Simulated scan of single mutants.
Amino acid sequence: MSDDQSSQPSKRSWLEKLSDTFSAEIRDRDQILQLLQEAHENELLDNSAYHIMQGAIEVSDQHARDIMVPRSQMVVIEPGDAVTAILDKIVESSHSRFPVMNDDNTAVVGILLAKDLLRLARESDFNPERMTARIDEVIRPPVFVPESKRLNRLLRDFRETRNHMAIVVDEYGGVAGLVTIEDVLEEIVGDIEDEHDPLEEEDIQELGDGRYRVSALTEVEDFNDFFRTELSDDEFDTIGGYVTHVFGHLPKRGEAVTIADWHFVVHTADDRRIRLLDVTRSGRRHTAPELTPHLASPEERL
């Protein structure tokens, strides 16, 4: 019997189980995930399709708080910002949507789209003073969602309203962070890279003002050479593995830890590993950095 013929019974067996599952009332998602895993192992689903289907099923278990950009990392339009300052923020951050804060900088009162600012620039003959005077005309009303909002429902709302950003509020109505439709989609399909994301081959990218963006795949030895640190590479080859060990769990985006004189914030991560880290000098040193991490408290992140 040929290899192709010998493999047919197992494939038919899996397809029969799949047919039986969907012909009956489905009560257990774990059963579906198990079948998808078997299909992946039997090479009936490639790696990308498997993870997308897995992500689509598991996304309903996640909430806005799990993937939001924390308030401390939000790039916002502050009271009194002139158009020139706003343009600088757009260029530096490469974002397309920006929360607009109220007069005392405690609440979000609107959302500014970069494309709306371009339209205003043309209508104002590219005069900064005229643009600043008319900025309120192009600020859109914000959409607020609770931290507990499930991602599958949030994605549905994004699609129905054609809105791409929501402000996440805590139980007291305060701003906890923000979430975008791209954030939700990345939980399903994985990271969506665009032309503004740093290239993976640039392991350490200087952002200015003492800030760095570091690939989690950077060798610990290379990290030590660049930052003049002495982190041990006996157990972990990459800085991502080292930082994950210090956390004691796989951290999510926005989680922070201080190691030696350096403060690490998870910039990008998926359900398998850290991808990018934001690194700044903390000014604090621990005598045994790999054993005594400083986890940022909620107050430090606000």
Score class of each variant (00 low, 15 high):
residue 5 Q to N: 03
residue 12 R to D: 08
residue 13 S to N: 11
residue 16 E to H: 03
residue 17 K to F: 00
residue 18 L to F: 03
residue 20 D to R: 05
residue 23 S to N: 14
residue 26 I to W: 14
residue 33 L to M: 00
residue 34 Q to I: 14
residue 39 A to Y: 07
residue 47 N to K: 13
residue 47 N to Y: 13
residue 48 S to M: 05
residue 51 H to E: 14
residue 53 M to E: 06
residue 57 I to C: 08
residue 60 S to H: 12
residue 62 Q to I: 00
residue 63 H to M: 14
residue 63 H to F: 12
residue 65 R to A: 15
residue 65 R to I: 15
residue 72 S to F: 12
residue 75 V to I: 15
residue 76 V to F: 15
residue 76 V to Y: 15
residue 78 E to N: 12
residue 84 T to P: 02
residue 91 V to I: 15
residue 93 S to Q: 10
residue 102 N to Q: 06
residue 106 T to D: 03
residue 109 V to S: 00
residue 111 I to F: 13
residue 116 D to K: 11
residue 117 L to Y: 13
residue 117 L to K: 11
residue 124 S to I: 03
residue 125 D to P: 01
residue 126 F to A: 01
residue 126 F to E: 01
residue 127 N to M: 05
residue 128 P to A: 12
residue 128 P to N: 07
residue 131 M to S: 08
residue 132 T to R: 01
residue 136 D to W: 04
residue 136 D to I: 13
residue 138 V to H: 01
residue 139 I to W: 08
residue 139 I to P: 03
residue 140 R to V: 07
residue 143 V to W: 06
residue 144 F to M: 06
residue 147 E to A: 04
residue 148 S to K: 05
residue 149 K to N: 05
residue 153 R to H: 10
residue 154 L to W: 02
residue 156 R to S: 15
residue 158 F to A: 12
residue 161 T to Y: 02
residue 163 N to A: 14
residue 165 M to T: 03
residue 168 V to N: 02
residue 181 I to W: 01
residue 186 E to P: 10
residue 188 I to M: 09
residue 191 D to Q: 13
residue 193 E to M: 02
residue 195 E to Q: 05
residue 199 L to Y: 01
residue 200 E to S: 15
residue 205 Q to G: 07
residue 206 E to F: 10
residue 206 E to V: 14
residue 209 D to A: 04
residue 211 R to P: 00
residue 212 Y to K: 09
residue 217 L to H: 10
residue 221 E to V: 09
residue 222 D to K: 11
residue 222 D to G: 03
residue 227 F to I: 05
residue 229 T to H: 04
residue 236 F to I: 03
residue 244 T to G: 02
residue 245 H to G: 09
residue 256 A to V: 13
residue 258 T to A: 08
residue 261 D to L: 11
residue 261 D to H: 04
residue 262 W to C: 06
residue 266 V to Q: 03
residue 271 D to E: 10
residue 280 T to W: 05
residue 280 T to H: 04
residue 281 R to Y: 00
residue 287 T to K: 04
residue 289 P to S: 12
residue 291 L to W: 09
residue 292 T to K: 04
residue 295 L to F: 09
residue 301 R to G: 05
